[in-house]
């Protein structure tokens, strides 16, 4: 049993009884299932929506709309500036996907997924990786020893080893801005408006989450990420 489990104020199934959880997933399934219930695959394995969405439990959610993302890299640059990272380094990395497709390739921007069950937190011997009560995963730069075990354990390759400090760092969702009522720098910087950030119980966010088109990455690892991807049905259908 992990220490953070009790602390994270979740609005999702974690606080509900098992019966309610089943009912919820059944409702979600019906809603989603009507829309096709299609299994899609972009790069990694994807689950049926109902199953995958039941995993999202963090207080804050970052939705990345892959229909709108142009791969311009403004988020990467904003992250670099905000976190005063060395030239060319960022907590966000853009992956080029679908190069083999006729419709041309598309961009998958990846950063720390702020997993509720974070593999990096489990393996960190120094307890330097921890959950903020909001569910955001943070790194204590004063206790990290730089063993890089977290970087190896993260299925999203979201960890960045900083040569200068000898610490393995990552996206912290600009928590200072968020707690002050603002949004992460990458969200504000996104030119096409592909990044949608908000509280899970925000009606707009809740609607997107239940739309049947939002998916976490690598749900098969059961990490329960707080970052989800709004995916294109066409592209998904092409690849499935």
């Amino acid at each position: 049993m992990k220490a953070h489990e009790g602390e994270v104020p979740v609005n999702g199934p974690a606080t509900r009884s098992e019966a309610e959880e089943n009912a919820l997933s059944r409702r979600t399934f019906l809603k989603v299932g009507m829309g096709g219930g299609l299994l899609v695959a972009i790069g990694s394995k994807w689950m049926p929506f109902s199953e995958a969405m039941a995993q999202v439990q963090s207080e804050y959610v970052l939705i990345i709309d892959l229909n709108k993302c142009t791969g311009c890299g403004a988020c990467e640059e904003a992250c670099n500036q905000r976190n005063e990272l060395p030239e060319g380094k960022s907590f966000i990395h853009r992956l080029k996907k679908g190069e083999e497709l006729e419709g041309g390739c598309w961009c998958l921007p990846v950063q720390c997924q702020h997993c509720q069950d974070a593999p990096c937190e489990t393996v960190c011997p120094a307890s330097a990786t921890y959950h903020h009560p909001s569910g955001v995963v943070l790194v204590n730069e004063k206790t990290c020893v730089g063993c890089k075990y977290c970087a190896i354990a993260c299925p999203y390759e979201a960890r960045i080893y900083e040569e200068e400090s000898g610490v393995v760092n990552k996206c912290w969702l600009c928590l200072d801005l968020v707690l002050g009522g603002g949004r992460p720098a990458c969200v504000d910087a996104c030119i096409p408006g592909a990044r949608i950030f908000g509280r899970r119980d925000d009606p707009e966010i809740a609607e997107l989450l239940s739309s049947g088109r939002a998916q976490p990455l690598h749900p098969e690892f059961g990490t329960k990420p707080g970052v989800v991807y709004y995916i294109f049905r066409d592209k998904g259908a092409q690849e499935s």
Binding site: P125, C147, E162, S165
Partner: peptide, 25 residues
């Protein structure tokens, strides 16, 4: 010697005894 910050500030190594869910601990 493979550590980053733990090599430069060896007292940090004491932290590595703390996370019981980590196999490294």
């Amino acid at each position: 010697f493979d550590l980053g910050a733990g090599l430069r500030e060896p007292w940090r190594i004491i932290n590595m005894f703390t996370n019981w869910s980590s196999v490294m601990t």
